[in-house]
Design a protein around this nucleic acid. Structure first.
Lengths: 245, 245, 245, 245
DNA sequence: CATGAATGAGCCTTCATTCAT
DNA sequence: TATGAATGAAGGCTCATTCAT
């Protein structure tokens, strides 16, 4: 048990490094993200940072893996929500909404992995892990679509492949994230609260696919409330608290 | 008039610089984009490049402005398509589809502007211009939505602000672009041809908004054909030609 | 006596460290030689390595001292070979030949001591020891030359100081070692087996000094055989065995 | 012709960089040799140094190539000395003696090329050039040996390959250089002036090979004088001048 | 105007060494 | 005594930017 404390410290610092890196990325942009500044910010030496991540690219990959894993886990839990497929896919939407707020820089990091030399220099096991996580995410989502089709709740348009609906939801989500985290003046169309914009379109798209809404009267609010309470209470609480707490 | 030739040469080189920068960005990624390589590629000196763009950030901003202007222009032309609002907004969808293929790096550049120090160092007039362009784009798009509502073709869901539908379309588009240009393995959901995926969801979203389709039988293909012929013949031709020509 | 086991363990580890360092130097070059890798290779911690050697330079000095001592010891035994001076100096030649094969990195290490900061940072007693060893080596060698001169077997050229012959042999040896351990393409002149090249010139140089060969017919092979059997049987055996044994 | 001045300046700085690097290597050892210090010493920026040599390894390779070329050139001139083979090979000896004094760090640099990652990172053309230079050197030397054999001046010992004599001379030279440039206390055997030690053994080795000396009485001094005057006057003068001049 | 040599701040990374446990 | 996490000086290299020609 003597080791456990050390290990905990290491794990904590691991987290600290990633959080710091994320914050920099979000706050001051890509160019502000460098190993020197991270070391300075966490008040450890550069060498120590390198004992956690063998290179800058490895760190970036770790950031991506971490949030991707969180996202997958949230989606898996969402998919497990008890109810009709439409309710379960709605839970995914809720998960996504929460995820944006919890990890607003997620797609920034993912995009970084493309622009940079990350693929060449990140440790292969991280890349492999990443791929597995994404596979699991797709499996979960596809499960809901399949269930919906089987249950007769969803009839895909003729010629539309099985995955098109997922691609639509995915695009909406990615686009939303990108627009959200841009420092641009986007007040053009965003006159709604952050989540509303995504959530509204999310459901409209599902409606467009004629994914059968629940029992005549579909009460968004109530279902969302149930999802939050039954599946994402922790995340919901965390976001409701004042930021500094 | 003696100056005119000079001016033309300058403008040509301007274009050459931007095209070269774009190509590098798309082909070899952000890290390969540097002033040395650009100068080398265009076979002019670095000093000359700096006479066109006062800094690297200024060049990147210019790239963004250029494609954004193209996009706006295409959207404006799309909006001017003669027909019912649904046809006009379909024309916007067609424009977007063409735009992705013509300037696949557009959102990469836009994203660069966020991650980088671009906003601080790019010339203010470029940023101003950018804003104007985006405003014009929004005006054009909003016009269609307003017309649709006035014509009774579109009834926005209760509580949904006027711009939500645009935000949905915009997110879809941005998300699609980002996913497209990622070197990731995205074969997960993309089993359709490039344009299909976007186009399909674009229309489903409109359907979701219950934006009235034309005259009972809505013939996608025929309308698209008309749009291409009447509005985007040039762009369509350019994309159909063999790349090298 | 309880300590003795501990002491033995320490001495063993001492040897292990030096052997490991040597192997790295020979196999992967100077840049691969660092305290981290040594610690890893011997499966002890870096701190432990530092308990043996107070600095990297101290370790390198120890390597040099060790092989230098071996070399001196071999030369002293060679010099003690029973026979005429020419036979005794031949025994030195045989010793050198064997030494190259046993410690091919010896001059690499010695050279390192020059290039590096070794002299400033190695423990003074090691440097002192080194000097003593070299003195002893010279004493042994000079003894043979003196005996040869006294016995009338060798008449140094006019004006040639007493030590010139030794300097010649020494240069030959050092040069041979350096050429041998270079990864260069040296196939230019080396068409002989490894030892032959050195051995041949060694004797030719002695002949050049008109160092009287034994009894009319000088049989290289037989004398070498006798030297190996009577003086260097162990070393000879060790080199004849398969490497892995 | 306008360019010529620039080019001259560049060439001069090229030389300055190499000279500075050499000086550091000789004076303060390998660890003192780094790009920062070189830049500082030549009073140019690091970037400028890198415009001359693309990497540290490339610079080291350049050092080696330069002195190796000088050496080859000197040997080629020596070989061209008019006289019997023995006189010509003596001229090579003289060349070597001068070379040691002119470029005392030569073999240090050559050795560096082995220890370092030089082979991997130096520009391939430099490595190729190096090889060619060495080939030319060997050709020149072999020519003399062949001529000596054909002229009946030299009868190689039975079984000794054609190149053994060259290997002997080469070893002597390398060994001498290494011993000379070592900061060790080598006063053990070196009681002669610098050149004497090498020169003496050089000739003794040739005698050992029974390479026929000239006309009964062979006058070293006079021949050396002739060689210096006819072939290496420049080098000889340069070395005779006070160092600082 | 065009050039491209020169600059130097800044970044990533390594590794000898120390010291609290 | 053994450990190995932490340190931070040092070094290699890049690249946006300037300016004398």
């Amino acid at each position: 048990m003597a080791l456990t404390r050390k290990q905990r410290e290491v794990a904590q610092r691991d987290q600290l490094i990633r959080d710091t890196a994320r914050q920099m990325l979000l706050g001051e942009g890509y160019h502000a993200l460098n190993m020197d500044r991270i070391a300075e910010a966490i008040e450890y030496s550069k060498g120590t940072v390198y004992q956690h991540y063998s290179s800058k690219e490895d760190l970036i990959a770790a950031l991506a893996v971490e949030t991707c894993a969180k996202r997958t886990a949230m989606f898996q839990r969402a998919v497990g929500f008890r109810g009709r497929p439409r309710e379960r896919i709605a839970a995914v939407g809720v998960a996504d909404r929460l995820f944006v707020d919890l990890y607003p820089e997620h797609f920034k990091v993912e995009h970084l992995m493309d622009m940079d030399t990350v693929f060449d220099k990140a440790s292969p096991d991280k890349l492999e892990k990443m791929h597995q996580i994404k596979d699991r995410m797709m499996d979960a989502l596809e499960g809901v679509v399949r269930d919906a089709v089987e249950a007769g709740d969803l009839a895909l348009p003729e010629g539309a492949p099985h995955c098109q609906v997922l691609y639509g939801l995915w695009s909406l989500s990615v686009g939303h994230h990108m627009i959200r985290t841009a420092p641009h003046r986007t007040e053009h169309f965003i006159k709604q609260s952050d989540g509303e914009a995504l959530w509204g379109n999310y459901n409209v798209l599902l409606d467009g696919y004629q994914w059968k809404p629940l029992s005549g009267e579909w009460d968004y609010r109530q279902t969302v409330q149930r999802i939050l309470e039954e599946v994402f209470w922790d995340e919901h609480q965390r976001l409701s608290e004042p930021a500094g707490a």
